[in-house]
C-alpha cells in the first residue's frame, strides 16, 4: 500500500475566457517515508497538485480523478473528514514565509490555533511544551514563542512555518517552493531542516520546486512536470543519471553550475506554452530537438520502462526493453 496515490488527476480552472487545463491525467504514487520532488516551471501545474492534495483549490477549479491518501479518496471525502486530515495528517508550507504568518499574532498563539483546530480541550502547558520541543528540534529557541513574526528573519520565519506544519506530527508534509524567496545560504539551511525531518521523523514529503538542483539531495522520487503533464517520473538516481524525456535532459544540462570545465551556456530554445492555447500533440514539441511527425499531431501516452514512466513518443515500443541509449549534449 502506498501512502499517497494520484490516479488520472486532471484539474481545470474555469476562467472568463475559457477553461484552463492546469493538470492533465497525472498519476503518481508515494510510499511511506518517501520523499517526492515535483519539479517544473511556472504554469506546469505543480502548485495546483499541491493544493489539490489538501483539497484547498480555488473555487473556480474543477477536479477529476482520484487522490488516494491511505486508501481514502481525498477528492470525494466529506468536508468534515478532510478538515480533520488537514494539519494533523497532511500539512503544507508555502513559498512566502512573510505572508503566511499572521503578523499581529504571537508565535505562541499561532501554535495554539493549530492545536485547537483539532484538540479543543488541550491544556496550555501541554501545548507550550510540544511547541517548544518542535521549535528546538528545528533550531529555534523556545523563548521566541512570545515573539511576533516581524521579529524573525526570513529564514527563521520559514522555520517557524515548518514547526507549525509539523507540530501535530503529520504523516505527509507538502512543501511548495519552501526556499524560493530565501537567499542561497539560508536556502541550504532550510533544506537541511527538511532533510532532518525526513530522516529523524520519518515524515513523507512532497517537495514542489522549480529547482532540479535543490531536490537532488533530498528526494527519493522525482516527477518532472511540463504544461500540466507529468512528463517523467521515477527514482531520483535514475532520472539524474539517465534522464529519458528530452525536457528533463535539457533542463539538467541548462542549469548554471560552478564547474570551471563547463563554461558554455546551454539553454532550451523557445517559450513556455500558454495554457489557454497549448500546442497540439506533445506540449513540448515546439521546443524539442528530437521532434518527430507524430509529436506535432498526437499527445504521447505514458510509457513504462523499468519502473520509470515517460510521456514521450521516442519510447514507443520500448516499454520494458533495455534503457535508451540516445545521447544529447
Amino acid at each position: 500500500m502506498s501512502l499517497l496515490e494520484a490516479r488520472d488527476l486532471s484539474i481545470e480552472y474555469l476562467t472568463r475566457d475559457g477553461n484552463l487545463k492546469a493538470v492533465e491525467n497525472v498519476s503518481f504514487s508515494l510510499g511511506f517515508h518517501e520523499t517526492l520532488g515535483l519539479v517544473g516551471e511556472s504554469g506546469c501545474g505543480k502548485s495546483t497538485i499541491g493544493l489539490s492534495l489538501l483539497r484547498i483549490l480555488p473555487i473556480n477549479a474543477r477536479m477529476k480523478g482520484k487522490i488516494l491518501y491511505k486508501e481514502k479518496d481525498i477528492a470525494i471525502l466529506p468536508e468534515e473528514e478532510i478538515r480533520s486530515l488537514r494539519g494533523k495528517e497532511i500539512s503544507m508550507i508555502f513559498q512566502d514565509p512573510m505572508t503566511s504568518l499572521d503578523p499581529i499574532m504571537r508565535i505562541k498563539n499561532q501554535f495554539f490555533e493549530t492545536f485547537r483546530a483539532h484538540f479543543q480541550k488541550m491544556k496550555e502547558e501541554e501545548m507550550i511544551k510540544i511547541s517548544s520541543d518542535v521549535l528546538k528540534s528545528i533550531g529555534i529557541d523556545p523563548s521566541r514563542l512570545e515573539n511576533y513574526p516581524f521579529e524573525f528573519s526570513g529564514g527563521m520565519r520559514q522555520r517557524v512555518m515548518i514547526a507549525l506544519a509539523i507540530v501535530l506530527n503529520p504523516s505527509l508534509l507538502i512543501a511548495d517552493e519552501p526556499t524560493t524567496s530565501l537567499d542561497v545560504v539560508v536556502q541550504l539551511q532550510i533544506m537541511e531542516v527538511l532533510k532532518e525531518l525526513k530522516d529523524k521523523r520519518n515524515m513523507s514529503m512532497v517537495l514542489i520546486t522549480h529547482d532540479l538542483g535543490l531536490v537532488a539531495e533530498i528526494v527519493d522520487k522525482v516527477g518532472i512536470m511540463y504544461a500540466g503533464n507529468l512528463v517523467e517520473f521515477g527514482d531520483v538516481n535514475s532520472i539524474y543519471e539517465n534522464p529519458l524525456h528530452p525536457y528533463t535532459r535539457l533542463l539538467l544540462i541548462s542549469i548554471p553550475n560552478v564547474k570551471l570545465e563547463d563554461m558554455e551556456l546551454k539553454y532550451i530554445k523557445g517559450n513556455l506554452p500558454s495554457l489557454k492555447s497549448p500546442p497540439a500533440g506533445c506540449k513540448f514539441h515546439p521546443r524539442c530537438p528530437f521532434v518527430m511527425d507524430v509529436c506535432t499531431k498526437e499527445d504521447p501516452p505514458t510509457f513504462e520502462i523499468n519502473e520509470r514512466k515517460v510521456k514521450c513518443w521516442l519510447y514507443e515500443g520500448e516499454h520494458d526493453e533495455s534503457k535508451s541509449e540516445t545521447n544529447i549534449g
Binding site: 528573519s153 526570513g154 527563521m156 542561497v184 545560504v185 536556502q187 541550504l188 538542483g213 537532488a216 553550475n257
Partner: peptide, 25 residues
C-alpha cells in the same frame, strides 16, 4: 567559499554532508 558551496548541484550522489554556515546576513 560558502557562497560557492551553497550552489545546489543537480546530482543525487552529492548527498555528502556539506558545511552549512549558521545565521543569516
Amino acid at each position: 567559499k560558502i557562497l560557492i558551496a551553497s550552489v545546489p548541484v543537480p546530482d543525487p550522489k552529492m548527498k555528502k554532508k556539506k558545511f552549512i554556515p549558521s545565521g543569516e546576513i
